[in-house]
Design a binder for these strands. Sequence first.
DNA 1: CGCACATATAGAATTTTGTCAATACGTTTT
DNA 2: AAAACGTATTGACAAAATTCTATATGTGCG
Lengths: 102, 102
Amino acid sequence: MELSNKQITVIFKALCDENRVQIFRLLQGGELCACHLLEDLHLSQPTLSHHMKVLCDSGLVVGRKEGKWMHYSISQEGAKVAMDCLKEITAVNENDCNCCSK
Amino acid sequence: MELSNKQITVIFKALCDENRVQIFRLLQGGELCACHLLEDLHLSQPTLSHHMKVLCDSGLVVGRKEGKWMHYSISQEGAKVAMDCLKEITAVNENDCNCCSK
DNA sequence: CGCACATATAGAATTTTGTCAATACGTTTT
DNA sequence: AAAACGTATTGACAAAATTCTATATGTGCG
């Protein structure tokens, strides 16, 4: 996989804002268009657009354009990448002890 | 599990800064004291202390005091909570379609 | 006790992020 | 073509995060 530190921060920034977390909850029922998301969130349209960009940049959400509507959904591929990344970054190599007092 | 949106953001803020991601990489070899972490990061001591607080607040890292040293390590329990949380928040309920055009 | 050392906290400066109003862009409809 | 609609971008401002210096706290040692 070999993701850089920077790339990892981009992925997890998706989950660092309460409104964005709420967007995930709304998308759990399936694909939604921006206008529908907007109804359930107390945000202006440009702010929602900004959050959707952060989410798409993370890879955890994908957008699909259909006429003048944008439909967003949770990406299972993106979720897998994030999961693998989290697993990798929290894995501990128990072989060597590099504690400074031993 | 039932974590609030706010609690979720606290967990994943751990991975939203490049220096903190680097700290995970350093801790993957095992427990390290703050002074050792400081050697490998181009940060002042108070800045490192701040990052370690963010990491401990997330639950992904735990600190252990030994005399005047603080030893930090990756928490496997915290990692599991984060993993479950990521899995839960990216899960899709395919039963109902709430797309606005259908 | 008093000094040295490791870490934490306080306060301030800088940068980043979140937010909105105004506007631009693209698509559909009349 | 023009109007209407949904979304994206721009620019400005506010809030939050990152960083540092200075200082405080706590621990071990002579």
